[in-house]
Amino acid sequence: MLDVSTRDIKKGVIISITGDVDLYSSPEVRKVIIDLTDKKTKNILVDLSSVSYMDSSGVATLVEGLQQVGKYGGKLMLFGLEAAVKEVFELSRLDKVFEIYPDEQTALDHLKK
């Protein structure tokens, strides 16, 4: 089961995902991200600390989010990736494309810069 929730912060929104992001659940993640990018949310931070499995549909969904925020000069950042999830990004060489931070605080610190 997948749970996707959002929390407003001063400079944007944090999306917290809990569960496996796969072919069947990633549309749920997409919906939340696209809702936010449609509203041109300036900064979207995605908390992946409770995601132990993500397949390429999950990765593709986040790439789509990144593409959308790029259109209006927003930011999409990821934090809290478990080793297995990080590996999926590394394999597709997307660890270089995304801004990835170890935890929420570090991600927020980067926003302040």
Binding site: S26, P27, A60, E64
Partner: peptide, 15 residues
């Protein structure tokens, strides 16, 4: 076999 959006499928295909 999936209900994924075409935009997602396109990115997956490229990956």
């Amino acid at each position: 076999h999936t209900q994924l959006e075409d935009s997602t499928i396109q990115i997956m295909t490229r990956i």
